[in-house]
Design a binder for these strands. Structure first.
Length: 432
RNA sequence: UCCCCCGUAGCUCAAUUGGCAGAGCAGCUGGCUGUUAACCAGUGUGUUGGUGGUUCAAGUCCGCCCGGGGGAGCCA
């Protein structure tokens, strides 16, 4: 069935030819003897013109009664738009209605957030939402391509985990045949096992945080890309992150420019995303904030207002490095010349979109790591396997995790993270 | 968990000091050969989220509950 249809995006190469299209009605405008029907096929859309004297009574009747989002098959000739340059349309010969839609709830007028979120299963059809989701797809595709092209293997981390990977945030628990297990908040520890087997690995999967976060930057369920590499030191890790982020942004600019236009994203801001990214140390960031009048001291963590204030000074992503040792996770390695600091970096998006990546060189000494586990008051027995990685051929290694939705938000310039994923799971939103 | 805001027609919103709940859009009917959120004319629409109270009178004021939004904390 599918093969007989011409994709809408290929129509421009078929002027004068007869084509058959299949899709849905985005909108229609009906006059006495002339009807304009905009058909979308999931990728692109095109206006179909029906002139009553030129078609059968059945086709004219079909054109007249088509409702928003009805599905249909259209046969017609491709022509150039009489008024608009570079725009094509279909002179309809025949319309076959596949399904006549009931009164579609999402109208062409504005709607509120609650209504749209209640109709998320339909909202994804709208042109902006569909464009965002295609950009998300490109971002994910580009991520996989980047790591495959750079010698990484996909090494999937489990989603059920026996304990808190990092021991910090609250986890969802699940009944596992009478035992309690948790939904993963990070796949990183398992990646560290992977690299000792395969050298360089990555995973891309869902992540769950049972925090009652209630902001435009947080999801309860989100997707994270995590990469890990053996014999990568802190510098190698920074370089990898820069290469990766630049690659992804370029791919979206190359392949999804039309969608960026649809959502009215300022692409100049994305074209500035080139090597190298600026870096500041945590201590410098504190000074910058104090200079901006914040009541902020060494050892304080950045909140949302602080992040925004720091980002004002940069027009591309920037790293904050060398965090104090007690502010981050237990597995991070201390700086060799100052043990009070960590070889850890956060990559912050410009334009106030917040943290995209958290990364670090990992502690590779079994004894030091054990001390850190104790210091963080984590149950040692759960980490025996993790300590084994340091006991049997430990090597210097580094890695990072990137939040897919945060990155989509930044690339698309979205106001709220809920539009960066098909079905967002938030504190007070778990349906549809 | 804390702070702030909202809930009125299918949707987006009005409603003066507490005084008969009403507009636009969508829907339906008709008109139009180039429309772009098309336009023009006609037409229907209500448990004002729920509950208790104050009052001659509550959409409006007060208490509680429910639903949602924004922010804080936490983080990607």
């Amino acid at each position: 069935m599918y093969e007989q249809f011409c994709p809408v995006r290929d129509v421009k190469d078929k002027v004068g030819e007869t084509v058959k299209l299949a899709g849905w009605v985005r909108t229609s405008r009906i006059q006495k003897k002339l009807a304009f029907i905009v058909l979308r096929d999931g990728v692109a859309e095109i206006q179909c013109v029906v002139f009553q004297p030129d078609v059968s009574p059945e086709t004219w009747e079909a054109a007249e009664k088509l409702t928003l989002e009805s599905s249909l098959i259209v046969t017609g000739d491709v022509s150039k738009h009489p008024k608009m340059e570079g725009v094509y349309e279909i002179q309809v010969k025949e319309i076959e209605i596949v399904n006549l839609a009931e009164n579609y709830p999402i109208s062409k007028k504005e709607h509120g957030t609650e209504f749209l979120m209640d109709h998320r299963h339909l909202w994804v059809r709208s042109s902006k939402q569909a464009a965002i989701l295609r950009i998300r797809d490109e971002m994910i595709k580009a991520s996989r391509d980047f790591f495959y092209d750079n010698g990484f293997f996909c090494f999937d981390s489990p989603i059920f985990t026996p304990n808190a990977c990092e021991g910090t945030t609250t986890l969802f628990d699940v009944d596992y045949f009478g035992e309690k297990v948790y939904l993963s908040q990070s796949g990183q520890l398992y990646q560290e096992s992977g690299i000792m087997a395969l050298g360089k690995t990555f995973c891309l999967g869902p992540t769950f945080r049972a925090e009652k976060s209630k902001t435009r930057r947080h999801l309860i369920e989100f997707w994270m890309l995590e990469a890990e590499a053996a014999f990568y030191d802190f510098e190698d890790n920074i370089k990898l992150q820069e290469d990766y982020v630049c690659y992804v942004v370029n791919r979206v600019l190359e392949r999804r420019r039309t969608d960026l236009e649809t959502i009215e994203r300022d692409t100049v801001a994305l074209e500035r995303v080139t090597h190298p990214f600026p870096r500041i140390r945590y201590a410098e960031a504190v000074e910058i904030l104090q200079g901006k009048g914040f009541d902020f001291n060494l050892g304080d963590d950045f909140g949302s207002p602080e992040e925004t204030a720091l980002a004002e000074d940069f027009d591309k992503p920037f790293f904050i490095t060398h965090w104090p040792a007690d502010m981050k996770a237990f597995y991070m390695k201390n700086a060799p010349n100052d043990p009070s600091l960590l070889l850890a970096s956060d990559l912050m998006a410009p334009e106030g979109f917040g943290e995209l990546i958290g990364g670090s060189q990992r502690e590779d000494d079994a004894d030091v790591l054990l001390e850190k586990i104790k210091k963080h008051k984590l149950p040692k027995e759960y980490f025996e396997w993790y300590l084994d990685l340091r006991r049997y051929g430990s090597v210097p290694h580094s890695g990072f995790g990137l939040g897919i939705e945060r990155t989509v938000c930044w690339i698309c310039g979205l106001h709220h993270i809920r539009e960066s994923i098909p079905f967002p799971r938030m504190l007070y939103r778990k349906t549809p």
